[in-house]
Amino acid sequence: MSIETLGNDEYRRVWDRFRTEFAFRPGTSRFEWPGIDEPAGSMTWSLTALDDDPGYLLLDRMAAVIQRGLASCAGELYALDWQHVSYRFPTSAKDWPLSPFPDGDYYAYLTPDFRLGTFGHPWEYTVCAFGDALVTAISAEVTEVLGEPVRRSA
């Protein structure tokens, strides 16, 4: 399997399910954040530690940690980019579409069963990881890169 662009029907189906299951509510106001109902056991980190990262070393490390964690927990993922092209791909792919860093839009990596993944919020400037296996796999190293989480869902 290679990286596949989601067709219109699958795109709508996946985004509709994401909106429903996570109560996705896009918004630029802090009163509308965090943008999803973060699942129990999730951890959310601020991305402000990346602001003083001229060579993108911290950003690259964060992305690598998250991608390694996702690959260790799942064989296939959706890479969702709100209101843009989204993808389905094997975690063994050499180059992944998108990044866990929300570069101007909401980005999410999700397993097909939605049990684990990440959600990047561009205006809150955060990344949330959810699913016990993923949180366990990445939390220590992401905390080392980004600092203590700003939220932990019980």
Rank of each mutant, 00 (worst) to 15 (best):
E21Q: 05
F22Y: 12
F22C: 08
F22S: 10
A23F: 10
A23G: 11
F24T: 08
F24K: 07
F24L: 10
F24V: 02
R25Q: 05
R25H: 10
R25S: 06
G27H: 03
G27W: 04
T28N: 13
S29P: 06
S29V: 12
S29T: 08
F31W: 14
E32W: 15
E32P: 06
E32Q: 11
E32I: 12
P34Q: 07
P34A: 13
G35N: 05
G35H: 05
I36M: 08
I36C: 03
D37A: 09
E38L: 04
P39C: 08
P39T: 03
P39V: 06
P39L: 01
A40C: 13
A40F: 05
A40T: 14
G41F: 00
G41S: 05
S42E: 01
S42P: 12
S42Y: 06
M43S: 13
T44V: 05
T44D: 05
T44P: 09
W45Y: 12
W45F: 11
L47E: 02
L47I: 14
L47F: 15
T48E: 15
A49S: 12
A49G: 14
L50S: 13
L50M: 10
L50V: 09
L50T: 10
L50K: 12
D51Y: 11
D51H: 12
D51N: 13
D52A: 09
D53R: 07
D53L: 09
P54E: 01
P54M: 01
G55R: 08
G55Q: 10
G55W: 13
G55K: 14
G55D: 11
Y56R: 09
Y56V: 07
L57E: 14
L57A: 08
L57H: 10
L58T: 12
L59Q: 08
D60R: 12
R61F: 01
R61I: 02
M62E: 15
M62D: 02
A63C: 11
A64N: 15
A64Q: 12
V65W: 08
V65R: 00
I66P: 14
I66M: 06
R68G: 12
R68D: 07
R68E: 10
R68K: 02
G69F: 01
G69R: 00
G69W: 01
L70E: 01
L70H: 09
L70T: 04
S72D: 07
S72N: 11
S72Y: 04
S72C: 03
S72W: 04
S72I: 09
C73A: 10
A74L: 00
G75R: 09
G75E: 10
G75V: 03
E76L: 03
L77G: 04
L77D: 01
L80P: 07
L80V: 00
L80G: 08
L80F: 00
D81S: 11
D81V: 00
W82C: 04
W82H: 07
